[in-house]
């Protein structure tokens, strides 16, 4: 099932409010290859969700300005008529969210919430939609799918709820799934199951997945590529194994150092000192500079995303400096 690539090109998301504008995403460019799973990582507030929502056109146009481009194959995701956007959501691109308790409608059965995707896109009659929905539930590993079909979200466990949400999102086999922290609200063992499910969907059905997460461990376990965002900017892109092995951006390596170790229960997290700068008040130059141990004079100048190879780029002055490009402190934890 050869498919299309998602190409995000100089995407920006700016929130307007009474107090001013707020650039949550700036000049973000990355690609999700067909059938690949890409991790989008970054601290809280770095613009990951804003990016994901922009791809599905879920921002409120009254308060949000979206710039740049995002294409999926031939489809320009950012310049669709409202009706066309409604048609593509759920059929071409899908999205799942962090907390299945709140993202599933508490008043509707699981079945209804899966069937409605099918009925709106495929116009099936009630009965065939139902049969199909039960198949989809089975596909996402829902035990007793016909029985669960009639259940309400509150009657299910967290893991099953997340499977239900995935079922609702992928019922019409979208080519791209944006998964916004799909495991954060779940137990560790369940987390692994859900990640494996997403990976399976990728492998078996050729679906591309953009996995938004804090968790570099998760990325390392299932993603082909990784995109690191910091304060609304993409700071590093590359194949997972190589990025995690040798991060090129100091921020990526600090993120890796900050993640909890699987083998070290109770160990202190290595918290990144300082705070993410407010996107509206970002300084010139590298945004991470105030928190960076490797900061130097050149960091104050304008930063570009520089290609390090065919599939790796980084936004850091030292990347183009041969002396530094090899090792960054704190790397190699993996």
């Amino acid at each position: 099932m050869a498919g299309d690539d998602l190409v995000v090109d100089h995407l920006s998301v700016v929130f307007r409010s009474r107090t001013g504008t707020h650039a949550a995403v700036r000049d973000a460019s990355f690609r999700v290859g067909a059938g690949r799973m890409v991790g989008l990582v970054g601290e809280s507030g770095s613009g990951k969700t804003a990016t994901g929502l922009a791809l599905l056109g879920l921002h409120d146009p009254a308060t949000t300005t979206i710039g740049g481009g995002a294409r999926f194959g031939d489809t320009d995701l950012l310049h669709l008529s409202p009706a066309a956007a409604d048609r593509l959501r759920g059929s071409l691109v899908g999205m799942i969210f962090q907390d299945p308790m709140t993202a599933l409608n508490p008043l509707l059965t699981i079945g209804t919430q899966v069937t409605e995707t099918i009925r709106v896109h495929e116009g099936l009659d009630r009965r065939s939609a139902r049969d199909k929905a039960i198949d989809v539930l089975a596909r996402v590993g829902m035990p007793d799918p016909a029985g669960r079909y009639r259940r309400y979200p509150h009657e299910l466990s967290g893991g099953l709820r997340q499977r239900a949400m995935i079922a609702a999102a992928i019922a019409c086999r979208p080519r791209l799934l944006v998964a916004d922290e799909p495991t954060t609200a779940l137990d560790l063992t369940i987390q692994a199951q859900i990640l494996r499910l997403l990976r399976t969907l990728c492998d078996d059905e050729g679906m591309s997945v953009l996995l938004i997460t804090h968790d570099l461990g998760a990325v390392g376990a299932v993603c082909d590529d990784v995109v690191t965002m910091y304060a609304g900017e993409v700071v590093e892109i590359g194949p997972t194994a190589r990025v995690l092995d040798r991060p090129s951006h100091p921020y990526t390596s600090r993120l890796m150092a900050a993640r909890p170790r699987v083998d070290g229960w109770g160990e202190q997290l290595d918290v990144i000192p300082g705070r993410v700068p407010s996107p509206s008040a970002s300084p010139e130059g590298c945004l991470f500079r105030p928190r960076c141990r490797e900061a130097r004079e050149e960091c104050a100048g304008p930063q570009e995303l520089v290609a390090l190879g065919p599939d790796r780029s980084v936004r850091c002055v030292r990347a183009s400096d041969p002396r530094d490009s090899v090792v960054v402190a704190g790397a190699g934890v993996r």
């Binding site: 879920l58 409120d60 146009p61 009254a62 409202p82 409604d86």
Partner: peptide
Amino acid sequence: MTLYRTTA
């Protein structure tokens, strides 16, 4: 507000 005016 998450609903587009156009939607509803």
